[in-house]
Amino acid sequence: MRSILPILTVLLAIVAVWYAAAVWMNSTWTYDQAARAGVEVTFGEVVADTLAQERPVLPAPHQVAKGLWDGLFGQKVTSKRSLVYHGWITLSATLLGFAIGTVMGIALAVGIVHNRAMDMSVMPWAIASQTIPILAIAPMIIVVMNALGLQGLVPKSIISAYLSFFPVVVGMVKGLRSPDAMQLDLLRTYNASAADVLLKLRLPASLPYLFASLKVGVAASLVGAIVGELPTGAVAGLGARLLSGSYYGQTVLIWAALFAAAIVAAGLVMLIGLIERISLRRMGLAR
């Protein structure tokens, strides 16, 4: 709570810089217009104009806020201009993909921890794949799926799943291996089965690692869903909004979509953080 004041200060500073930048970056157009019309403009008029242009180079914060507000609450949620509508399309693909990726990631991690051949075969590739810009294949997956007759939710979810899969595998393997030799030996003295060791020791011990990689994974899933919306030509979703905004130079639209995406991302990460805190507290692992 001590941090509230510093954070607010930093945010205020950002807004202030933003306004200054908006005036500075949009003034060229204002001066151009004035010169064309052959009129002199005072500094006050310049400021007023730069903060209220139709298609500013950099929209002022209040313009973005208004665009966001209109997008979220100004329309029926089924309208093609509603950010709730587009946000939900992106969010549903993200969630579906994230769920698939997480479940498969955990399953593979369990396999890797129990099977040495699997460990040695798959693990180096799983780690290496984190250094590869996997996102680049997103458009291709969309198009191939399209050719196979799959459209909409599923192809995007596959990309999301793919992107969240590897962080979960790597984090979970680390977590499942986190119990030390003494804890494992203790269970061995009880003659516990492999399933018992997994359920009673490895899985609980892996939870902190799991949540850390879930946060990374969900952010990656969202990016995947957004990028997955680009190649189909701006039909629906936040990615499509970004693309159509950039086609028509509607900067306010781009910024509003960007903030909507940020809200979704922040909400998802916070939700996982909340689940993390609750479950770790239940297990007595919280600090």
């Binding site: 952010a219 970004l242 922040a266």
Partner: peptide, 8 residues
């Protein structure tokens, strides 16, 4: 944690 590629 935000989808920064969106600023592209």
């Amino acid at each position: 944690a935000l989808p920064i590629v969106g600023i592209a």
